[in-house]
Design a binder for these strands. Structure first.
Lengths: 197, 197, 197, 197
DNA sequence: AATGAATGAGTGTTCATTCAT
DNA sequence: GATGAATGAACACTCATTCAT
């Protein structure tokens, strides 16, 4: 499988440089020329590994979405779980760290993938909806365990999701500074559980 | 005045159809051809009223941003103000209703104007930053009045902003259904002030 | 005929400003917008008096060509005429002065009307050919009177024509300075009759 | 080298057809479509080899100007040179032959490049000024050697330049017939040196 | 597998001309 | 007669994609 290994490397090489170029210039601002120039391959080679400019973008998108997805998984919403606050904070720290170590990809998701085309939008929407549903389920369980007061769970889930997104946007996408994930996560969780008053 | 009135109508006619086309196809997906076809005018007529495709877009963008801005204004953060909860809820209702009655424009801001070009990005960023700063200021005052517990105000403001954005995205942009602004606003404010626990 | 008088004035008004605009911006660089703006009339008015942008240009061209033509006429090539040298110098002075007092038009003929379109080219060519033929005829007579030595009259006429054109180009079109028509004409005539050696 | 050779051929192919199209239709009359249709290449291919329509034109222009420049060079204006008459005639023959074997290019310079844009005009003007200065210098030397009678050298140079230009225009640009360069050059030189009287 | 020259559909924009008022 | 808003054909140029080598 030497061939396929070399091929895999080629793919990665293109993918990595496409990531940088997209993050830097945006989807529309990045031409296939820019990508192949950055990757050091010929134009034709690009199309040997990817169907289109859009396809390479979609692949990058899937990559981060699945990375983020796995950061979220693993919350124990069963009855005998660890204190919710700790669990939530742990998840949030993982998400923030994932975003931080994939700044370019995160920037793409937050800035470039929005309103791009229907397929991409559907993908982002699906991811969002998954999180929303997961949060609603978690709130339902929490309410059953009386860890969470009765509330409009759909709105509450939406608020949490939005808060986390905005935190990522502000502290990861907009800023280049390193991130104090622990304390930010703690503040977010405290805000969510205890409110401001 | 007849002339300028007719001209104003023409402009609006183009602007309105541009709005629909942008909302439907996105900035890059919408060609000037699409817009003039939708508006039922000739290509040249478009350029009689607008300098460029970008210029129409910017105008639409400015329109909603200033509408939203005026929805936010008017919070009394002085010491003798009405209860914060009520004020916040009032603002939020106004924002939600503004967004609801400008669904296409709101969609554009949330979906199409992101990552478009530097000037547009800067405009959105500025709007965002303005809100963030306003929220931080409001939290500072609230903390002084002991209406708000001590907290990381930057993170808290970010969370609120994100929550509101996501609520608009979910209930206005994603959905076509009419909106129960009052109860959603109430839920958001309650979430923000009291938290979930 | 008050109407036609007013109409005539309108025409002139447009014509004069078109002249300035063409002289300043060139034929292709001048838009109908520029002309009507300069003339202070509406776009439609322009087309009330002229068939097209090209037509107004042609009219300006004809104007100077006929002015120049009449500067040339009147040479007495009969046997009992005044000394040829004096006559030639007189003609040349008239031509130079005509060109000088119509600098803008002259500039147009020398710079803008060249290679414009077939009709205009044909007009310039015809003017040129007329002068060439006239010069050949003059040389033929001069040779008969033994005022001119036998020579290749076609080449000689071409040389004279070229010399005069270049003189106009250099001292009228390229320069804004006032012109010492007498002495330049004298130098040209002396060059033509006696040569340099 | 094969690649660059093929590329060179492609360039020439486009250049040559652009030459014909420009010569036939003029700069403004020739669209990029016309050029690529004539050259039998796709629109994009044109832009692979040239930056713009203007750039091809400039290249063609530079080509003939430098060819003509080298036809002029090499006159020995030192004191021990060959008889001026012979030298002048030789130069003129070279110029005429260069023009003759580049009829399309010459047509472009004489007809299409005039009044095109400032950069092109400046180029032509510079060429002209160079010749004028060279002629004035030659006349100054000739006067010192008493080969040339005292005269207004600026006017004389202008006359010679104009004569040569007009000869090229008449016998090369306007006519398709083959050219008797020798005898025309002889007639021009004789006219210049001995005059007509 | 790798190349990069070639492609051509598509873009935003201009401007001479028309015509309803 | 006068207006200027409206028109739409035409333009130079771009770039994702293909394919002969």
């Amino acid at each position: 499988m030497t061939r396929s290994k070399r091929a895999e490397e080629r793919r990665s090489q293109i993918l990595e440089h496409a990531l940088l170029v997209f993050a830097h210039q945006g989807y529309h601002g990045a031409s296939v020329s820019d990508i192949v120039k950055a990757a050091g391959v010929a134009r034709g080679t690009f199309y040997l590994y990817f169907d289109s400019k859009e396809a390479v973008f979609r692949e990058l998108l899937d990559e981060l979405l699945s990375t983020l997805r796995s950061s979220v998984r693993g919350m124990d919403i069963g009855p005998s779980a660890a204190p919710m606050q700790e669990q939530l904070q742990g998840i949030l720290v993982r998400i923030l760290r994932t975003a931080e170590s994939n700044r370019a990809l995160t920037r793409i998701i937050f800035r470039e993938a929005v309103g791009l085309d229907e397929a991409v939008d559907a993908k982002l929407q699906g991811f969002n909806d998954g999180l929303q549903a997961w949060l609603v389920a978690a709130l339902t369980v929490g309410e059953g365990l009386e860890l969470v007061r009765p509330t409009d769970r759909d709105v509450a889930a939406t608020c949490i999701l939005g808060a986390v997104r905005q935190v990522i946007d502000r502290y990861v996408v907009q800023s280049d500074a390193p991130l104090d994930a622990e304390s930010i996560a703690a503040a977010v969780v405290r805000f969510s559980l205890e409110g401001l008053a």
